[in-house]
Design a binder for these strands. Structure first.
Lengths: 233, 233
DNA sequence: TGCATCCAACTTGTCGACAAGAAATATGCA
DNA sequence: TGCATATTTCTTGTCGACAAGTTGGATGCA
């Protein structure tokens, strides 16, 4: 991909950091840069055709979100996915599913629902096409849209981070995704959206919890299998 | 405070960023740098006796936590406290109080309780001394210690951010803190700690919720008064 | 006088170079 | 040969300087 460096002279001042940040973030979340990959500043500066300064700024931001780990004076690398503290992750994920859906039922505006329904359509499309990667990302986009409708930036921020972390995790196992369960997810999404539209906060919360727990147990099943097969914990 | 610049030659490589970050963060949270204060890089680099590079890195990190706002190519300043979306803040704060306390009851180890009790002693001391500023910071430290005992870094991270935001907020009104309510807080803390020690997750959660709602309503009272008197919203 | 334009001074963004710390390699000694 | 130590190499951390964009004031025109 040399078109990245070819843009070196037409770059607008201040945009370089964002470009590097966005691309690296994508590559980390898509596991093109798998956990443990070394991150070399000079290599990146050559690749993007800019000096190390904006590269470093992008790396500092990625480190702030926990996507990369920096060993002082030594190397920096893509952060590991922590298989040992997984229950912390699941606890936080389920709670954010619940609270963001509940708040969406409470605070959503009509225009929010349009976006949510569009995302749900995209998810259904991915399920129809049996495209596991697309399922993962459209599912995250749908739930993030619901969270946005809840209008609490603190929850939305944490939830977004958790969903991204989940994309990284799930992508490790996307081969194991069969196409039976996702169809059920589509139905569950429809029920959740209906509850939100009806402003039934209690029902929305309950559906979200069940949905989240379903997903978590699905992931855990994959993890147990995966741990034995691939990771060997 | 010129002892900051005087250390310029004895500084260890890589420590500069942390120093600047910690000091600025403190000054922002303590409102020594009030919201809206301009942040000038060269001024800071003169003050700390180092080049702009490490200063900028510290600023990027502060921006990542939302403590400062950066206008591209223009100025950067201490971020405003958002009085309009306050209910989002309170929702998140109460939920984190509840969940971290509940998890502490579930997962704490003996050594955690020692730290928690030490923090509680410091809080009681601040109440005894009627030192409102110390109350605010020792209260935050206590609840953060409880959260650490719950061992969920996602919740602890968000909670820490919320408590810091709260320090900034409360400090605006610390004059209004009377000394009757804080004594009650000490008792409530004791009850919460006892519930945690007994591993009674339900009770711990309920006490935390009541405690948090008490605090929130206290802040809201101050805010209504304050909005009229000082801010004029 | 009022307004648009231009110019100057600041501030931030980027660069290339150098220094320091750590890992890898080479060297010397037993 | 095996181990401790010195040296080289590589990566990151810091620096001073320059470039670009913005702001506010000066200048010129109607």
């Amino acid at each position: 991909m040399d078109n990245e460096t070819s843009l070196r002279n037409e770059r607008k001042r201040g945009s370089g950091v964002k470009v590097v940040y966005d691309i690296l973030r994508d590559e980390i979340l898509h596991l093109e840069l798998p956990p443990g990959s070394p991150i070399d500043e000079v290599q990146l500066s050559e690749r993007f055709g800019m000096s190390r300064t904006p590269i470093r700024e992008a790396l500092v931001r990625l480190a702030g979100e926990g996507l990369i780990d920096t060993l002082p004076n030594r190397s920096t690398m893509v952060s590991q996915i922590d298989f040992l503290n997984m229950h912390s992750y699941f606890d936080a994920l389920v709670l954010m599913y619940r609270v963001t859906t509940q708040l969406a039922a409470k605070y959503h505006r009509p225009e929010d629902l349009e976006i949510v329904r569009a995302r749900q359509a995209e998810f259904a499309e991915a399920v129809e096409a049996q495209d596991a990667l697309a399922m993962i990302s459209t599912n995250a986009a749908l739930h993030l849209a619901i969270a946005e409708a809840g209008r609490n930036p603190y929850f939305t921020g944490l939830f977004s981070r958790l969903l991204n972390e989940g994309r990284r995790l799930l992508r490790l196992y996307y081969q194991s995704y069969d196409d039976r369960l996702p169809r059920r997810f589509v139905e569950e999404h429809d029920e959740m959206i209906a509850a939100i539209a009806a402003r039934d906060t209690e029902l929305a919360e309950r559906l979200a919890r069940e949905h989240a727990e379903q997903i978590v147990s699905q992931i855990q099943k994959l993890l147990v299998r995966g741990d034995r097969l691939d990771v060997g914990l």
